[in-house]
Design a protein around this nucleic acid. Structure first.
Lengths: 214, 214
DNA sequence: TAGATTGTTAATCGATTAACAATC
DNA sequence: TAGATTGTTAATCGATTAACAATC
């Protein structure tokens, strides 16, 4: 049904705003309003109204109605569909340290189409454990595991110095995308999707703003 | 010693690159090279060399030497100082769910100057527990706690629908910055620093790229 | 109709990249 | 010196914002 023949270039910034639209729209679900306008969303979320209109135009299945705006229920569905809530990607996580265990236990990813089915670690102390119902296997077993159960997304939560090695392993295991939590530039062949997550960077930004204030 | 009299506007994008520079430079620590040039860093991290030079110029305490580049040890120290590794901010976390517990247990924040000293939750089942050596108190005790122990950074890991309420509470408790993991626009008075973290957004980007590939 | 809202075309802004003179 | 690298000034690029005609 998706007749998007051209990639429909939506910027990463727009994608980042979508979860905020979604969560705001959901707060309206149980109210009596059924339509919402771009200017209202913009003022609620402190955004420019043209920006909101462009964002919505990019992901909405129907045009907004002059004087009314967008039907809330339709918009919620459209955003969820666009975000990929209805896909179901299998993921595995490598590195069952603190952060890794945290992500394993975090249930919020399923709402975004990611199902983490197993974890791997090279530390014997971690291997064999069960975290949030997911087994931790030895890293040596990763390739075999992925042969039996194709995995789309590999999540790297190992220390920086091990990240490249794990990355190579995941590529050998044929994952299509890598979600990298180590602050390291990974070398990968073309075609493999890399998404770097950098929690520390946000902290850096906070520190900087705090320092500026005084 | 820091004679930065003007704010020295460094963009958030630059700040986001600093952890990658740092981690790369650290890999050179135990080698025999003592100087590194912007072009080399750029090619290693797949960045533009002018961009690297500008980034380094913004944070370095000394100018680079033509033909040699930057002294690695000095650069490491400068980045760490700039990032705020040497500050020590007290933080508390509200919402000891999966994500909250993960962040509590994650030890990596101390390297960025953040020391999470306690957690709060309104769920009786969570209250009284000990996570990674940190106590979980009832949210009702938050204000009193912050009166005794001034807290700089409040971390919000409660569900989206409770985030604003907790935000208000943290502001009453006089925190200077809020690190918000809920995908919600928070309303705050001027002067309070807000940093939104949006883990789901990265997942959205991965989903989109995966979808484009086929 | 009048006015709010839409989608779009043009202007602005900021970040990235290219070009270049200065330095060791 | 010649050449690699520096820092800086100018050009490019993309995202945000402003202006405006079209619609109900």
């Amino acid at each position: 049904m998706s007749d998007k023949n051209l990639p429909n270039q939506v910027s990463a910034n727009t994608l980042r705003r979508l979860p905020y639209y979604l969560s705001y729209l959901k707060t309206l679900k149980n109210t009596d309003v059924s339509y919402i306008s771009a200017p209202v969303i913009a003022s609620e979320l402190d955004l420019n109204e043209v920006q909101v209109r462009k964002d919505l135009a990019a992901i909405s299945s129907v045009a907004g109605k002059p004087k009314k705006g967008f039907e809330i229920d339709v918009l919620i569905n459209d955003i969820q569909a666009y975000i990929g809530c209805d896909v179901n990607n299998c993921g595995i996580l490598v590195g069952a340290g603190h952060l890794g265990r945290a992500l394993l236990a975090y249930s919020g990813f399923e709402a975004y189409g990611l199902n983490i089915i197993a974890a791997f670690d090279s530390n014997p102390a971690a291997v064999g454990k069960d975290i949030a119902g997911k087994s931790v296997y030895h890293t040596d077993a990763l390739l075999d595991f992925c042969k039996k159960t194709p995995v789309t997304i590999g999540i790297i939560t190992v220390p920086a110095e091990d990240a490249q090695e794990i990355c190579d392993l995941l590529i050998k295991a044929n994952v299509k995308a890598i979600w990298n939590f180590a602050p390291v530039k990974l070398c990968t062949p073309d075609g493999v999707i890399i998404q770097n997550e950098n929690i520390a960077a946000s902290l850096t930004i906070i520190n900087k703003k705090l320092a500026e204030q005084f």
